[in-house]
Design a protein around this nucleic acid. Structure first.
Lengths: 341, 341
DNA sequence: CTGAAAGCGCTTACAG
DNA sequence: CTGAAAGCGCTTACAG
């Protein structure tokens, strides 16, 4: 019975101190790199700590050191193929930096305000927003609380808020140019949800790329970034009297849906009858069945930049806000007929 | 300049108290549901809190209440398609229970010991292990620290450790039976990494299901759960002099790889030339291009059970350990010729 | 209903 | 190098 109650109460530095016959200060010092403790004291403390199973309480510690190593990370359902890939990298890197991710879940298109602010009752050192949308008011509130904010894939103009985004406009321009150079004449676009920044920018980019050659979009549909929506909208495009000879899709999942529609349902060859280009270069894009030509949205580079900006702003909270744009690169695989380089 | 310094220091209950002209106790009470405060005091505190942008510090609070609402969650790179799906659900549910996930990242096949134990310096109320492997020693250590542990998809025998797993053996049996009933004669198996529990159990199950009808595996290959490995090993099977007429794969990703190999590379029709069955029923299995027949590993049911067990053990730490098995269900789509039900 | 005080588990000047 | 003491931001008996 005694055993049981003992198991439940966490061992404290006081326990270790009395077991080792030293003060709590000595215990604290042995676990603080660089603090001055004699070898003998240190050994006794270490021994006692081991016997008792002591682990210092990071929270109690943070109360005095004022550093928690906690970073709030806002994520959604990870339902796209891109998100989990990004997220896995991000959390791995965070851990390597000895920071801990405190998760905030938001339904994908919700404003992050309430759940994020709730999470901020834990004294995090910063927050990374990689899902949902964030209002200027929420950003302002974080600023007031002194919590540095870094947005991923979404940018707003606000003091103390940094962002890293793919250069979506440029990427879509590249896709349009490559398609035009390969003599495609009827270039269609399948967009994502109109409220999402990536859609706005990619949509503008493809139009701009076409306009530079005196062309405009031959046809256009709107999906919701899901495979299914790519499949469905591609069907509409490909069954028209005049089908497109190329489709640029706002993300890879929709591009894959479009490939499926062309090949399995309409009976068209890709890329011989229709070229298809996606965006993101998720791992699945390289699968032989898809072998998708796409614009790579470089995950590691994005993660590096996010962490770098966060660090910077933790150290110097009053820096002017920055938006870093990551250059996408064209990955040529088999789903589009493109001119030789 | 003063402004700046003010922004950096977090507003405390002391600040609110003096602004409102009340004691810290009063502040604490207004934020503690059910505590007795007069309406007037409450109003003044609320007003002051709002003006100052006060948010009570969950960590400082936890020091006295002894409850942090923090749950450590061990995850990997989310590289399979199943993991992010599972993980998104888990964190959503956790948040709805007003628990916060503290993330622990492990490289997928590593032992979780070091990173998990490090995370436990934060006073979490429990831990969920959904990636990596866990040694009895690590489990024992968690037990000593009084941290309830629930494993997902992996089971070990240890006091104070609960687990929820798919009934993999049963699922694989079902696949074997369905294939035999549909008169397949040459049934092959593509396994996953031999060290993973799901592989061990699914492999045993398919053999058992076959043996019940006097059959045994016609051929066998080993992949690593990735699409690529399914593709590669299926190629070997299908290019043999005597190819199988059915392939059961240890997970959906490999089954999709096998489908791709059959259709795009070898030129075989699925299911007319070869039936293919996967395991898990990841969202992608339903995509038209795959339309994969598979065993559903029910995510929501798993999550419910994990959370239920965790709750139970937090309340009653000394309960005997339990392993809950979730029944998989056969999802009949188009990738396998099966007998009518 | 309210406030002064003790306490949660730690760290860090301070004095020795 | 070491320990006693104060303090981090909160909560909770206790007394009024």
């Amino acid at each position: 019975m005694l055993e049981r109650r003992r198991a439940r109460r966490r061992v404290t530095s006081e326990d270790v101190a009395s077991q080792a016959g030293v003060s709590r200060s000595a215990v604290s010092r042995t676990f603080t790199p660089g603090a001055s403790v004699s070898q003998e004291t240190r050994d006794r403390v270490l021994r006692a700590a081991k016997e008792l199973g002591y682990r210092r309480n990071a929270l109690a510690r943070s109360l005095t050191t004022n550093s928690t190593d906690l970073i709030a990370v806002v994520m959604g359902y990870l339902s796209s193929q891109y998100e989990p890939y990004f997220f896995g990298r991000l959390t791995a890197r965070l851990q390597r930096m000895h920071k801990r991710a405190l998760l905030v879940h938001v339904d994908d298109s919700d404003e992050v305000g309430v759940p994020l602010l709730e999470a901020l009752s834990y004294p995090v050192e910063g927050a990374i927003v990689a899902a949902g949308s964030i209002s200027p008011e929420t950003a302002e509130e974080c600023m007031r609380l002194g919590i540095p904010l870094v947005l991923s894939g979404r940018a707003i103009e606000a003091d103390g808020v940094d962002a890293v985004c793919c250069d979506n406009f440029r990427g879509a321009q590249l896709a349009a140019e490559a398609l035009v150079n390969a003599k495609h004449k009827r270039i269609a676009y399948i967009g994502g949800k109109a409220t999402i920044q990536a859609e706005v920018e990619r949509s503008a980019g493809v139009r701009d790329g076409l306009a530079a050659h005196g062309l405009s979009l031959f046809a256009e549909e709107r999906g919701d970034f899901s495979f299914e929506s790519g499949y469905r909208t591609a069907l509409t495009l490909l069954r028209a009297d005049q089908p497109p000879d190329a489709i640029f899709c706002c993300n890879d999942a929709m591009a894959m849906g479009a490939m499926d529609a062309a090949r399995h349902t309409v009976g068209l060859a890709v890329p011989d009858d229709v070229s298809i280009i996606g965006f993101d270069d998720i791992p699945m894009a390289a699968w032989p069945g898809f072998n998708l030509t796409t614009l790579r949205n470089p995950v590691d580079e994005a993660v590096d930049n996010i962490l770098d900006l966060l660090q910077r702003r933790i150290e110097r909270p009053n820096l002017p806000p920055v938006i870093r744009r990551i250059r996408p690169v064209m990955v040529r695989r088999g789903s589009a007929k493109l001119a030789q380089l």
